[in-house]
């Protein structure tokens, strides 16, 4: 089979969607935090913890849905704890996030061993998997149906969240407040918005989205938990939101880009070509995209700064 045939085959496109889902969740987690002016580096560890929580809780209760609920609650809880250390105990957000990541990479392995007596993977644990959805009408359309229908329910939830996120950020009062706090916390405070509270809320939401991504990894993408199952997808999600300008549609596009690259790397490595260069590509594109976006932002900001404070602008230029 040649590469062209592979890329337009329905299985390949379906793989892209499968690969995109967890990155999109992580991207939404990064997006909502960034909109509130917070850099949540701990998306990775929240995903990891929730992935384990989903497996353990669904095995104990026998229900995939309760497992998902538990995972999401744990994710929100972690978001809250991180917010507490950052905004109440005044810990540096970057170091704080790194600390949580380091803690949970080993911590999840430890917890899994304590809870199940297993190391490495939880294959012996009777955990449940979330169902796939076959969409009536859509599934009957040739080609399109094969690509878009029959995915895990979380994939469709991710798409719905992306749309809802847009509505939430730009059409609701709370969304406006989150954006205000992110743009200018002092201005937001001056009109009576409690910026600390808003940041707490954004971190809890961020934890929730990350938890969905984690649950997808262990209860849909795979049917068990394994060490470092997220494999950096939390970081990639952060990059996706940065590359997408912290906008829902942009984040979706960036996530798709990563999904395509993942799927291509998978396919190419099965053809015995050097897959490293393909795997590297999305990260390179992210860096280039980020630079492009920063230049664009810089140009947009420059004229407005010129109007008022001359000295400050001069300083920014040198900085």
């Amino acid at each position: 089979m040649n590469v062209g045939q592979l890329i337009f085959s329905t299985t390949f496109l379906a793989t892209v969607i499968r690969m995109t889902t967890p990155i999109l969740f992580a991207g939404l987690a990064g997006l909502i935090a960034s909109q509130a002016g917070v850099m949540n580096l701990a998306v990775e560890s929240i995903m990891l913890t929730s992935a384990l929580a989903g497996v353990l809780i669904s095995a104990w209760t026998g229900s995939a849905w309760i497992g998902l609920l538990g995972a999401v609650l744990i994710g929100i809880g972690m978001g809250f704890i991180i917010a507490y250390t950052a905004f109440t105990l005044h810990a540096d957000m970057v170091l704080n996030g790194v600390a949580f990541n380091l803690m949970m990479t080993g911590g999840t392995m430890f917890l899994m061993y304590v809870a199940t007596g297993q190391k490495g993977t939880s294959t012996g644990v009777p955990s449940k998997v979330l169902p796939t959805v076959s969409i009536p009408l859509l599934r009957d359309i040739p080609y399109v149906g094969e690509v878009l229908s029959g995915h895990n329910v979380l994939t469709y939830i991710a798409m719905a969240f992306t749309v809802l996120m847009f509505y939430f950020l730009f059409k609701t009062k709370l969304g406006l407040r989150i954006r205000m706090v992110g743009e200018n916390p002092a201005a937001a405070e001056s009109v009576g918005i409690n910026s600390k509270k808003i940041k707490y809320l954004a971190m809890c939401l961020s934890g929730m989205f990350a938890a969905f991504g984690g649950a997808y990894m262990s209860m849909a993408y795979m049917s068990w938990f394994q060490n470092n199952i997220t494999a950096g997808r939390g970081f990639i999600g952060m990059a996706a939101s940065a590359l997408g300008g912290n906008m829902p549609l942009g984040t979706l596009m960036a996530s798709l880009l990563f999904g395509v690259a993942d799927a291509v790397a998978n396919t190419i490595s099965s053809l015995n070509l050097p897959s490293e260069l393909v795997s590297m590509l999305p990260y390179v594109i992210t860096i280039i995209g980020l630079v492009y976006y920063s230049i664009y932002l810089g140009r947009k900001k420059a004229p407005s700064a010129k109007a008022g404070k001359g000295a400050k602008k001069e300083e920014e230029k040198t900085a």
Partner: peptide, 22 residues
């Protein structure tokens, strides 16, 4: 006892150290 208990210690130490209010 699994050696991953160390990562919990690491995490707690850093969080306490970078938390200015501690």
């Amino acid at each position: 006892v699994q050696n991953e208990v160390v990562s919990i210690i690491q995490g707690v130490v850093i969080i306490l150290l970078v938390a200015e209010s501690f």
